[in-house]
Structures are given as C-alpha cells and as structure tokens.
Design a protein around this nucleic acid. Structure first.
Lengths: 221, 221
DNA sequence: ACGGCACTCGACAGGGTGTTGACTGCTGTC
DNA sequence: GACAGCAGTCAACACCCTGTCGAGTGCCGT
C-alpha cells in the first residue's frame, strides 16, 4: 500500500556501508528500463513483465524491488520534482531586481526540466487519474509551488509593484494549473496546443497580466 | 475500434419507425448505470460486469450494445459537451454589450454544466490519458471552443476594446487550458484547488487580465 | 408454419496481476 | 570449516478482467 519496503528497494539514503549490494543495480535497471520504455509507449501498455525482462530479472523478482508498477513511476516522479526544485533555485527571492526577467527565468527552467523528462511527466499526468499515491505526491509538490508563488505575489504587492486583486493563493493556484495543462498539451501534441518554442512566452505574458496587469512590471527603485 | 456498430447501440437518431425496441431501454439503462456508478467510484474500478448487472443483463450482452467500457464514457461525454455548447449559446456574439458580464456568463454556464456532471467529467479527464478515442473527442471539442474564443478576442481587438499582444489563438488555448485544469482540481477536491464558490470569479479575473489587461473592459459606445 | 432478426448468455481463451514456497549462494560467526 | 541467516531468485499457482464464439429464444412479417 504505502511505499515502505523491507529495506531493499526504497529508502537507504542512510548510506550505511554495504550499499554495494547487487540489488542496487537491479533497482536502478528497473528504473532505467521504465524511463526508456516510457519514451516508446504509454505507461498502461507497459507490463510488469516488460519492466522485469528489461532489467534482466523475472516478474516475481520485480516484486522484491517494487510493490507495483506505479511505485516505479512514483520514484521517478520524485526525482524529477526534486530536479525542478533545484532548477528553480532562488529565483523568487530575487524577483524585485527585474520582475519580468525573473518570472521568465522561473517558467523557462520548469519548462526545461519537464521537457527533458516529458515522457515521464505525461505518464504521471495519466496515472494521476487512477492512482491515489501519485495523486497525493503530485498534490503535495504542487502545494509547495503554490505556496512559493503565493508568497512571491504578496511580496510584490507589498512593495507596490503589483496591484491588489484576487487572493494571492487563488491566483497562484490558477497560474500553476494553467502551466500544468498547457505544458501537458504541448508535450503530448494532443489537441490544441501552443507551439513548444512559444510556450514560455505565452505563459509568461499571462502570469504578468494576472499578477501586475502589465507586461513590464517595475523593478525595485 | 471506432464507435461504428451494427445498428443497434449507437446511432439511429434517424428515428425510423420501430424505435420502440426493447434494446433501446437496455442501452439507456447501461448509460444510466454508468453515470450512477461513476458517482460512487472511479472509472477504473467499474468493471463491464458491474455495468451489465446494473442494467440487468449479462456481460456478453453488454457487448451487443457497446464495444467497450470506454465507448460508454464516450457517449456520455458527447452528451455533456452538447449540453455545454447549448448552455453557452450566443453569449460570445453579444460580447460588446457588456464584456465583463458576458464573459462571466460564459464561464458561469460552463461551470454549471460541468458541475452538474462532475463525476463524468472527472472520469473523462482520467481516461483521456489512456484512451485514444476519448482523447480525440476531447481534442475536437476543445478545438471548437478555442476557435470560438479566438474569434471573440480578435473581434474585441478590432473594435479597440482589447489591446494587441499574444496571438489570439495562443491566448485562447492558454485560457481554456487554465479553466479545464482549475475546474478539475476544484471538482476533484484533490490538491490545491480554488473553492467552488470562488472559481468563476477567479477564472473571470484572469480572462479579463489576459484579454484586456483590465478588470472592467469598455462596452460598445 | 416458417425464415429471419433482435437479443441473450454459458463457456472459453488469453493476458495481466500479485503471492507462495522452495531454491541458491554469499557472509559473518563460533 | 560447519552453519545460521539473509539477500536475491523464480516456477507455479490463484485470481480477475476482457473479449469472443456459438448456440439458443422469442417475436414479427409473410
């Protein structure tokens, strides 16, 4: 049910000492196989057997490392969100220097991170509908980002750069939601979508309009 | 593969004459069962057997009416999008009368239509990830709406009420995408979401900001 | 009275998941 | 240097769900 496992598969960032166990390689192989196969077909069309064979083990052995197919995705998702957090860095605290440039940087970096793992991101969006675990993790990640954006908007209002208006939290939720869905469509090439090379600028424009009612918000004096 | 069927299940809006066949009731019963069950559990947790038993028939008989579980959803989705189109009506052609009021009306009516079938809408969003048929239908519906919004934005620009800026199509895509994702979160109560009673106003505010850079766009003189 | 069609379902084949229980080989211990 | 113990492995099984096939049943027009 939860991701908790005997001790093999998950966890063990507590390096201990004997981290050189052969099982480590197998686990890595499963993860790598998953990311590779995801680039070829949809998550639902990948069976546990595919994952196991790809990693050179039998299906029952797969269960020694992960409790389910979804758990593999969860582990992969965890990595990507960490990567995105790292990429975002401290951009938000330096907002006042040059708001337009900083917001663009933020959106651009998320775009690059997700774009580099689009197959995985797409798979997560799909599975989120059917898997409570993935849904929970994604909700938690999103909540963190929403709070960061909310705080940034409030700071911009406090310094007089952004006008009052919607509750900052609602604004932050709507803007994040927009990004998520727009990126999804762009990466999936599915239905009406913004061209990949324009997407950052389109999103940026709407963020600035929503937050500042202006495409060239003032830097700090 | 496609929704084409022998002649029983689908189609037959060409009333013919003998539309009073017993099979009609069965088909309706399957559809009703699906919508009812969808309010209790996720689409993936409903088996064809559940649908069949709910309609008082056996599983093989189900296949006489629909080629798959997904086809049921597709039929239901078709209805809701028609309902939404009808609810939207001619609001967009009367935009210039009072832009803020008309845009609000548009968003409000979509909100009401989707809200009345939230379980179904949620299920479609989930299945869209795994089913090409649903994905295609949704993409087609979205494309229609995007084009309508795009045309409306261009009309507002032509009459000088809205400033130039992003390509109208990109703007329309982003705004529609935002609505879709924000509604999804609100209806699913999953992760950060805007409260249901605020959602129309939040979306409206961002639409006006994106299109007019202003919360009170001018009516026609 | 009879051919045909709408409609129905028992029974099967196939493919996926998750579990059990037995087996292998290394590693540390007395 | 025998041996307990555990990481790691898999054949075989039980189960559930899907989709199909073929053999019905009852009604309708002719």
């Amino acid at each position: 049910m939860t991701t908790a496992r005997t001790g093999a598969g998950r966890a063990s960032p507590r390096g201990r000492r004997a981290a050189r166990t052969a099982g480590d390689d197998r686990e890595t192989a499963i993860l790598a196989t998953a990311e590779r196969l995801l680039e070829q077909r949809a998550f639902g069309d990948i069976s546990i057997d595919d994952l196991a064979r790809g990693a050179g083990i039998s299906r029952p052995t797969f269960y020694f490392y992960f409790p389910s197919k979804d758990a593999v995705l969860l582990t992969l998702l965890d990595r990507v969100t960490e990567e995105a957090d790292a990429a975002a860095g401290d951009v938000l605290v330096r907002l006042a220097e040059d708001p337009r440039a900083r917001w663009r940087e933020l959106i651009q970096r998320f775009h690059e991170t997700f774009g580099a793992h689009r197959a995985l991101v797409l798979a997560c969006a799909q599975v989120r509908g059917t898997n409570a675990e993935v849904r929970r993790l994604w909700a938690a990640v999103l909540e963190r980002w929403v709070q960061a954006i909310e705080a940034a908007i409030e700071a911009e209002r406090r310094r007089g750069a952004a006008p009052d208006g919607l509750p900052a939290r609602d604004l932050a939720i709507a803007l994040n939601s927009m990004n998520e869905r727009v990126w999804y469509a762009t990466f999936a090439c599915d239905g009406p979508a913004v061209a990949e090379r324009d997407v950052v600028d389109v999103l940026l424009d709407l963020w600035l309009a929503g937050i500042y009612r202006d495409t060239t918000p003032p830097p700090s004096t």
